[in-house]
Write a protein that binds this DNA or RNA. Structure first.
Lengths: 334, 334
DNA sequence: CGGATTGTTTTTAACGTTCAAAACGTCCGT
DNA sequence: ACGGACGTTTTGAACGTTAAAAACAATCCG
């Protein structure tokens, strides 16, 4: 494997000149640059990243903790990872995966990776309501950016990128309204979830705006499962008054709604419009397709990397992005 | 950030002694070791991985190319990644993610990562029928191990770990047989797929063993989609003779079967037993649950890392693991 | 023509670690 | 008391790169 020294000898210049040819080509005379580049090509030289990192103390690696348990964003994790990876590579960086215990117990792992100079910083996801990681990392001066806001705190430590859940719910409500639905319910989670509060809030506000009823139309599911979604839907339908639209907080809950509707002989899309959240692979796989709110993964990843690598340079480090409504059969005009 | 030098000064020994305390503690006198360790702890010293890697030319990083397009194993990618990551960490290593074009076009990316000393080797997945990567990497002497066999080649370049698809299909057939099914069909893919041939072969052999018919019971779907699975099932059911069991090559195809059965008023599990492959998240989410063949992810990951890191040490570098049949409602005794 | 200015290249010295060899002790047998 | 053997610690050099400063060369200005 060729080294700078060998290239230098071949091109009959000093090592530093070869280094400059790669990192600051404008400093070289045109003909020298050409000669050096020819030697580089000829010897098939590739800079040793470890040596470079040792000298510059920047490893160009970004840590990402792979979540261990399924939950709401789990189904789109591969999309996210691919986008993140691609965005990192556009800046010459890469993603280093690791596992860590949840919450504050995982912090030593983060600290260790940083202290050993294995990563420059972290991208956090699976942000939780009182996520202790943000404050801890900020405290230690370890660079990071969060995908997802830490809810219920006035000022969140550190930078973040998130998708506007309230706006998403509102989009879903207005979409159902446009196809004639007038009693639109919401399938949510327990109050403790900040993400849940964000999304239910969007539903509530949009309904109020449009003059739609909300009383008795918000149901809280105990967990994010098909079963719970179905049960909650049953409760709604047994309530006596009709429901012609359901905005679910997740694709999983929406699937439960679809199942319960079908079981009762109601046609999703025709009799009741249903929407989900996150546009997971499930959404286009069920029958009829599930209308859902897609997170703009590429944009999210791009922003995360831009902010983390400091390229943001003055522009805000808190970015709220808009989801996109992907319309499928489950919300076909009734 | 503390360095070896600082620790050495603090413990009043040479740098090399501190290095030995970490890498070869048996060489130190007990009291020296204790003193050095106290200093390490006190200064919260962590070895700089870049410096170590530069010296030893081993980065303890394993490259994994994140697949860009959905396909059969896509739905369990996060399970795989988590297992791989955990297995790597058990040996002090980590996973570096990257993206690359498919097939031979991606090879420069692999080469580059290796030449720049950013990874020690690679784990390949999404192995394809005439996958050119294995031969190429072998040629370049770049360490790698493959999750999945390169099909239709007598001897595959390099080491691999795979799951026995034929055995899986056979398990499914015997399971359905045990609950009284006697006409068991197979939903497969076009002949070009080696993985498909493996799985259909297992079905065929098991049926022959049990004295079950196979003629006209193997259907090839054009692609891996719900729609195709449903269509193929329809073709089977329209064939005149009854079918009381369906072994599908993938969970997706199995879902299609479930849909078509339900559409015709047949109860999956009761009237026709259905099984899928890979035990994706979909399997436990549909109603009734889909019986499926789980890939032993933790074991797969463990083997991959063991082989790649050379810890295998004489033991075979070709490991065929057995899937596990996860029984759910779709194959409830008829 | 001397001095300043700018542009290009080289020299020197790190970055933090480990390897290999050398040095230092201590103990042993004779 | 001496050479050898062993166990422990230190010394010197190297891994491949880049930052900073120094050296050199060409150009410009009055």
């Amino acid at each position: 494997m060729a080294t700078l020294k060998q290239v230098a000898a071949h091109a009959e210049v000093s090592v530093q000149t070869v280094s400059n040819a790669l990192n600051a080509p404008h400093r070289l005379r045109a003909d020298t640059l050409k000669r050096v580049n020819r030697s580089i090509e000829l010897l098939n030289y590739r800079p040793n990243r470890n040596a470079r990192s040792l000298r510059t103390s920047a490893v160009e690696l970004i840590g990402y903790c792979v979540p261990s348990w399924p939950n709401q964003t789990h189904l789109v994790m591969d999309q996210f990872l691919h986008a993140l990876c691609a965005a990192a590579e556009r800046t010459g960086r890469h993603i280093l995966l690791f596992t860590a215990p949840g919450g504050v117990d995982g912090m030593p792992t983060y600290d260790d990776l940083h202290a050993r100079r294995m990563v420059d910083g972290f991208v956090l996801s699976q942000t939780e309501t009182h996520d202790p990681r943000h404050g801890w990392l900020k405290e230690q001066d370890i660079p990071f950016v969060s995908f997802g806001r830490v809810w219920k705190q006035t000022t969140q430590p550190g930078a973040w990128v998130d998708v506007d859940g309230a706006a998403g719910s509102a989009m879903a409500v207005r979409h159902l309204y446009a196809s004639g639905r007038r009693r639109i319910a919401f399938l949510g989670w327990p109050k403790s979830s900040g993400l849940g509060e964000d999304r239910v809030g969007g539903w509530r506000d949009a309904c109020k705006d449009l003059g739609l009823p909300i009383a008795g139309l918000a149901v809280r599911c105990r967990e994010d499962s098909i079963e719970e979604g179905a049960r909650a839907t049953a409760r709604l339908l047994d309530g006596g008054r009709t429901v012609d639209g359901i905005v679910a907080l997740s694709d999983i809950l929406a699937l439960g709604a679809l199942r319960e509707l079908t079981r009762r002989g109601l046609a999703p899309g025709h009799d009741v419009g249903v929407t989900g959240f996150d546009d997971s692979p499930l959404a286009e796989v069920v029958s009829p397709g599930l209308t859902s709110l897609r997170q703009p993964m590429d944009q999210i990843a791009e922003e995360l990397i831009t902010i983390l690598t400091g390229a943001a340079n003055g522009s805000p480090v808190e970015r709220l992005l808009q989801p996109e409504l992907v319309i499928r059969g489950s919300s076909a005009p009734g």
